[in-house]
Write a protein that binds this DNA or RNA. Structure first.
Lengths: 228, 228
DNA sequence: TTCATACTTCGATCGTAACCGAAGCATCGC
DNA sequence: GCGATGCTTCGGTTACGATCGAAGTATGAA
C-alpha cells in the first residue's frame, strides 16, 4: 500500500489555485518578491507567505534574500519541467482557466518558459533548426550537429562555453499552447538571451510574454525560416 | 492573471492521498475495479466512487463497464507519463511515503510502469540495448537502429508490426527508483509482454512488482548483459 | 421472481487548510 | 535614534471537500 514516492504531497502543493498561479508566474523565469506573488495569486501577503514557505519546503521554490526583499524562483529546471508538463497535460485536456481570450494571442506567439523561448516562435525556431540540419532530433531527444555549431558561430554565437556546463545543451520541452516541442536546455536559454541582448525582443513587466521589435521580428524570421 | 492552462485542477486531483494511491496503483497497468481501488486508497467504496468520478472527469482515468464491474485504467499514456514524472520529481526531493522498507527491494528490482518494464531490470535492459548499438540515444530521445531491429529478429521478435502503430516505438521514461531512464513506447511494451508470454516473469496479484523465474532471470541477464 | 453483488447517489458530519487582521521582526533610509 | 517598507508569525474564522451511513440502481445468479 505504502510504496514509492508520495505524489500526493506535490499534487496538493500545486493543487491550490493561489499556489498554482504563483508557480505559473514563476515559469516566466523572473525572480519575484513575496508581495508580487501575492498579487498574482490574488491573496494577501500573509497568506502568500505561508504558501511560499510550503512551496519551498516541498522543493518547488527557492528564495534569495536581498535587502528587505525576498526573491522567489522555481527551485531548478526539474521543477520548471514539472510545471510545464502539467500545463501541457492540462491544456491537452481542455482544462483552461478561461476561454481563449483577446490577450492570449501575444502569449501564444512568444513567451518565456523558465529561461527559454516558447510559443509559436519557440516552436518555429526549433523546427527551423531541425530542417536546416543544425539539430538532430530523435524522438524527444535533440542534439546539436557540427553544421549547427558552425552555423551558430557564423552569426556570432559561440557554443563552446555552453558545452562545458553540466546542464544538457539541447532539450525538448513540450509547448502547451502549440502542443509541439520547442528548444530548452542551455542552448535554448542562450539563444533567448542573445535575442534580448541584441534588442530584438524584450520581456514585459509582469507577464511571461515576449515582445519582438519590428526589426527583431524581421531578423528572427530571416534567421529561422520555415520549410515551405 | 488568468492565462494559460489550469494546473491547479489536476494538481488538486492528484493531491488527495486516496486518489494519489489509486493513481499509483493504476501505474501498474492493470485495470482495477472500483472496489479494489477503494482498497488501495484505504477508503470505502462510496468515497472511492466519488473520487473515481472526479478523476475521470479530469481526464486522468477512463473506465470500461464489464458486467457489474467497472474497470478503471489510466486514461492514456500521457496520463501515465504525468504520474510517473511526478513520482520522479517526488523521489528526487525525498518525498517518500516511508523509509525504504523490506518490501521495497523487489519493487526496485523490477516492476511495471504502465505497460513496460521499470526498476533495476528496466534500466539495465535499456543500458544494454544502447551499449550493444541496438538503440541510439540522443538526450532523452531513443531510436531503434537497423542492427537493433535485426538483433531482435534473431531472438524471434518482429518489430515490423510495431512500426506501423501511431505510438512511438521507443520512448525514454524516467525511473523513480533508479533515477535513470528505462525503455517505454510500443517496443518497451512488446518486450515486457514477450517476457511474460515466455514465462520468464510474472506479475503479482495486487502489486506493481514483477517476479522473474530463475530460468527467466538467467535468460534476461544473458540477453541484456552489462557493459563491464 | 428473489437474492446477492457491484457500484452510485444522497445527506449529513467533521477536519483541515486557506484566509485575513493584528502584531512581531528585520532591513533600509533618514 | 525614528518611521517606513517587506515579510513572517499568531489567532481565530470560515468554507470546502473528504468521509461514511443509508438508500437507490444495475447486473448477474439461483
Amino acid at each position: 500500500m505504502k510504496e514509492g514516492p508520495d505524489i500526493a504531497q506535490i499534487g496538493a502543493l500545486i493543487g491550490d489555485p493561489a499556489r498554482a498561479n504563483m508557480l505559473a508566474a514563476l515559469t516566466g523565469g523572473r525572480a519575484l518578491t513575496a508581495t508580487e506573488l501575492a498579487g498574482v495569486g490574488g491573496i494577501t501577503v500573509q497568506t502568500a507567505s505561508t504558501h511560499l514557505a510550503k512551496l519551498e519546503a516541498g522543493g518547488l521554490l527557492s528564495q534569495r534574500k536581498q535587502g528587505r526583499h525576498r526573491y522567489f524562483t522555481l527551485a531548478d529546471e526539474a521543477a520548471a519541467r514539472l510545471i510545464e508538463s502539467m500545463m501541457g497535460f492540462a491544456a491537452g485536456r481542455g482544462h483552461l482557466r478561461h476561454r481563449p481570450g483577446p490577450k492570449e494571442p501575444v502569449l501564444r506567439k512568444a513567451r518565456i518558459c523558465y529561461d527559454h523561448l516558447a510559443g509559436d516562435y519557440g516552436v518555429r525556431m526549433l523546427d527551423s533548426l531541425i530542417s536546416s540540419g543544425s539539430i538532430d532530433a530523435i524522438g524527444e531527444g535533440l542534439a546539436l550537429t557540427e553544421k549547427g555549431e558552425s552555423d551558430l558561430k557564423c552569426i556570432g554565437f559561440d557554443v563552446g562555453a555552453l558545452k562545458s556546463s553540466r546542464r544538457p545543451l539541447c532539450r525538448s520541452c513540450l509547448d502547451w499552447s502549440e502542443r509541439r516541442a520547442h528548444l530548452a536546455g542551455s542552448l535554448g536559454k542562450a539563444l533567448l538571451s542573445s535575442f534580448l541582448d541584441k534588442g530584438w525582443a524584450r520581456r514585459t513587466a509582469e507577464s511571461r510574454s515576449i515582445i519582438f521589435s519590428p526589426e527583431g521580428d524581421r531578423q528572427f524570421l530571416r534567421l529561422f525560416p520555415l520549410e515551405s
